[in-house]
Computed example of a mutant assay.
Amino acid sequence: MSFVKFAAFVFLCCVFESALSQYIHDCKSAGLCCESVNNTCFVPNARKMNGEVGVCFCDSKCLQMQDCCSDFQETCKARDCIMAEWGEWSQCSNSCGRGRKHRKREIVQERAFGGKRCPTARKSKQACYGEYGCLQQSVEYSREEMAEVGYIMPANYSIWRVSKDYSPQHDIRKNLFFKNFQDNVIPRKPVYRAIFKVTHVGRACQRTQWARVLEKGAEVCVECQPTSMNKRLERCTGHGVFHQETTWKAIEVRNCHGKWKMITHHEYETCNHQGDHDFVLV
Score class of each variant (00 low, 15 high):
R173C: 06
R173N: 01
L176K: 14
F177Q: 03
F177Y: 15
F178A: 00
N180V: 02
V185Q: 12
I186Y: 06
I186G: 01
P187D: 00
P187L: 01
R188D: 07
R188S: 10
K189C: 00
K189I: 05
P190H: 11
V191D: 03
R193Q: 12
I195M: 15
F196I: 09
F196D: 02
V198H: 07
T199N: 13
V201M: 08
G202A: 15
G202R: 15
R203N: 12
A204R: 14
C205W: 05
Q209E: 12
Q209N: 13
Q209T: 13
Q209S: 14
A211V: 05
L214D: 09
E215L: 02
E215S: 14
G217V: 07
E219F: 05
E219W: 05
C221G: 11
V222Y: 05
V222E: 06
V222R: 06
E223F: 04
E223A: 08
E223P: 00
Q225K: 08
P226R: 09
S228C: 04
M229H: 07
M229I: 06
N230P: 06
N230G: 02
K231S: 14
L233A: 13
C236A: 08
C236P: 02
C236R: 08
T237A: 10
G238D: 02
H239S: 11
H239M: 10
H243N: 15
H243M: 15
T246A: 04
W248S: 01
W248R: 04
W248P: 02
K249H: 07
E252M: 12
V253A: 10
V253P: 00
V253G: 10
R254I: 00
H257I: 03
G258D: 08
G258E: 06
W260L: 02
K261Q: 14
K261E: 14
K261R: 13
I263G: 09
I263H: 12
T264F: 09
E267I: 11
Y268V: 05
T270N: 11
T270Y: 11
T270S: 15
